[in-house]
Each structure stands twice: as C-alpha cells, then as structure tokens.
C-alpha cells in the first residue's frame, strides 16, 4: 500500500467513525452551518483547556477563537488523519505555546493567573499557613476545593499540564496525546506518570477529608530530557 493509499484509507476510516470529521469535511466545502456546529460543540472544552494553560480567562477565550480561525483557514487542506479532536487540540497546543512565548517575552506572565487566584488568596503559601496551625483547620466547600485543584494543576509544568488535561478532560489516549504534542507514546507515559504523581502529592491532604493542609515538598520533579 502506497503512502497516498494509506492516507486515503485513514481519511475514510476517520470519516466513518468520527462525526466531527464529517462536519469538518462539510466546512471544507464552505458550509458555514457546519463550522458553527463545530464551534458550538468544542468551545467549552477548548476554553476549559486553554484557561489552564494561560494566565487569564479573556486570553483563553481569545486563543480559543484563534484556534477556530485557524481551523477555518486550514479547511481547504484538511485531510482526516486522526480524530477531529486530536487535530483540534494539536492546533490548540501550538496556539497556546505561541501565546505563552509571546507573553513571556513581554514579561507579563503571572504565575497563578487562573480566576480566583489573584484576589482569592488560594496560594500554596496560604495553604501552608493554614496547615501550620496558625489558622483553624476547616473543611473545604466544593468551590474552594476547585480552586485548590486548579492551583495544583498550575504547579505542573506546561507539558505535564497539557497531557493531563487532554487525558482527564478530553479522554485522549496516550497515542492521541502523543500526536497532539508531537511526542512518543513512551514519552507521554512518562509525562503522565510524573503529572499524576505530582498531583497526588499536592492533593494528598485533601483526598480523605477535604481539609486544608500543608502542601508537601514535591519529590518528583519533571525533567524535559526524560519526558521528551
């Protein structure tokens, strides 16, 4: 089987199994309603991932729109070689990486920029203070727990975070994450194990009781050399 036959076979396969691929093929034929449907299906998921990758919600929405713009611009050259979501999140990963680079260049990046962190005080320091006994121990409500989890996610490095988000919230397999992030399956496996171990250590105090506690020193630090 030649390379073009193989690509055609893959395209037919994904067209058959993935309804979003079929929608994208309609977009390729300038069907605006199909594009609107794709935006509607993926906007929440895309913004949800983006807002863990960039410091501001507004920026996350702008980047999600940029991703959709790129999808539309790329429609004429689109050839289904994977699930539509894999292709979409590959673009999202590139857009987010570019945005982070340009934000870093402008030195405007905030370490904990997710909603609620700027004013809410759910920093690692604050959690440690509460755990020290200087503040009364109490059970977290769901919103607070959500903020703690968000903070824990922010502690992951960029690649761990992306892999974790794609696995946990998009249900992508290691192979699909590898395609999205241009990594081998083995590298994704390593990335995921480090991400999950770091999350385990960060969230351990909340697992059983939902109580604020000291965030332990992280023993497993990811190194890009071993992950990539």
């Amino acid at each position: 089987m030649s390379l073009s036959d193989s690509a055609a076979f893959l395209a037919r396969k994904y067209e058959m199994i993935d309804p979003d691929v079929r929608l994208m093929l309609q977009v390729q034929n300038d069907n605006a309603a199909a594009f609107e449907e794709l935006v509607s299906r993926y906007q929440s998921r895309l913004v949800g991932v983006m807002e863990h990758l960039v410091p501001k919600r507004e920026l996350a929405e702008d980047l999600a729109q940029e991703v959709f713009m790129r999808v539309f611009r790329a429609r004429k050259n689109y050839v289904p070689g994977a699930k539509f979501s894999t292709w979409l999140f590959t673009i999202a990963n590139n857009v987010a990486s570019n945005a982070k680079r340009s934000v870093s260049k402008r030195k405007e990046v905030q370490v904990t920029g997710a909603p609620g962190f700027d004013s809410g005080g759910f920093s690692i320091d604050r959690m440690a203070l509460e755990a020290s006994g200087l503040m009364p121990t109490r059970k977290l409500d769901r919103d607070e727990l959500g903020l703690v989890v968000r903070e824990a996610i922010q502690q992951l490095n960029e690649r761990q975070r992306m892999a974790m988000l794609l696995s946990r919230f998009e249900g992508l397999s290691y192979e699909e994450i590898g395609k999205t992030m241009d990594l081998s399956v083995q590298a994704v496996k390593s990335l995921m194990s480090r991400a999950r171990e770091k999350l385990r250590q960060l969230l351990e105090p909340y697992v059983d009781h939902g109580v604020l506690g000291k965030v332990p020193e992280i023993q497993v630090e990811a190194s890009d050399e071993t992950e990539g």
């Binding site: 929440s44 769901r142 727990l145 999350l199 351990e204 697992v207």
Partner: peptide
C-alpha cells in the same frame, strides 16, 4: 488508591461556562 482519589478530585474543578 491515592492516585485514583487525587484524579477524582479533578472533578471538583468548576465547569467552564461559555
């Protein structure tokens, strides 16, 4: 068990509203 429970805690993240 710890890994699974910490993974489950991710459910407490607020849903993204658009």
């Amino acid at each position: 068990r710890q890994l699974q429970h910490s993974w489950d805690l991710l459910e407490s993240l607020p849903r993204t509203s658009i």
